[in-house]
Design a protein around this nucleic acid. Structure first.
Lengths: 117, 117
DNA sequence: GCAATAAGGGAAAATTTTATCCCTATCTGA
DNA sequence: TCAGATAGGGATAAAATTTTCCCTTATTGC
């Protein structure tokens, strides 16, 4: 694993939420897990643009941060299911608010983002 | 400027909001500008852990994305003031929700973040 | 027997982001 | 006269993140 060389600040609520949500796919992972897509392979199919590796790494971090739990079924081929913890579930309304803002301003956002890409 | 080699996806609201909000200091910049800290030097003092350079770069992007406007006063020494656009202001409740979640779960977050740093 | 599926980690490369350092300009105050 | 405030960009270095490639295990289906 990579060792951070710069210690993060944890001064305010925004710093704290940033620490657990900052990662290219974390928000989507939480969202899809909440929607019932629990198995790693399902999540990979829902998020095809992410490499398998990063999804695993980010799922590990979400687990460390107690936002999701990982249940391993001792079968072959292996079966794993992720679920949101109670703590993780409290994030869903916040993520929903983010998505709603994005949806509401979809056209304008697409415009300003693509204008200067 | 740096040229991206991978085109972002803009499929859903979460992708879109991510494009404009993803950046280490952008959320804080929007927040502090909304609080009335408009001048670059003030913002730098409010966010001492960010380098001057990145704040400028991220302010430029926020401006391109029409979340803030930059007003230059033709005086010496130079004076510049940033303000939120109407569009930018619609983001404030969303950012507030993020901060509130972080504040509410401050102790637990600090705990899980520091446990495995 | 061979390919596909399932889950996931190690190592190294590529990409992206952020930091550091140095440069510009002009006015104010010690 | 020299330091400091003010705003900001270029070039490069460093850090962090993400991708790519390869490896493992055991079963099902062709």
């Amino acid at each position: 694993m990579y060792e951070r060389k710069v210690i993060p600040n944890l001064n305010c609520g925004l710093d704290l939420i940033g620490e657990v949500l900052y990662g290219k796919w974390k928000i989507r992972l939480l969202w899809f897990i909440d929607q019932g897509h629990k198995r790693p392979s399902e999540l990979q199919r829902k998020i095809p643009d992410a490499s398998r590796r990063v999804l695993n790494m980010q799922l590990n971090e979400l687990e460390k941060h107690e936002l999701v739990t990982r249940k391993i079924y001792p079968v072959v081929p292996p079966k794993v299911e992720y679920s949101l913890t109670e703590f993780g579930k409290t994030l869903i309304p916040v993520i929903a608010a983010l998505g709603q803002w994005g949806d509401k301003h979809e056209d304008r956002l697409r415009d300003v983002i693509l204008k200067r890409l």
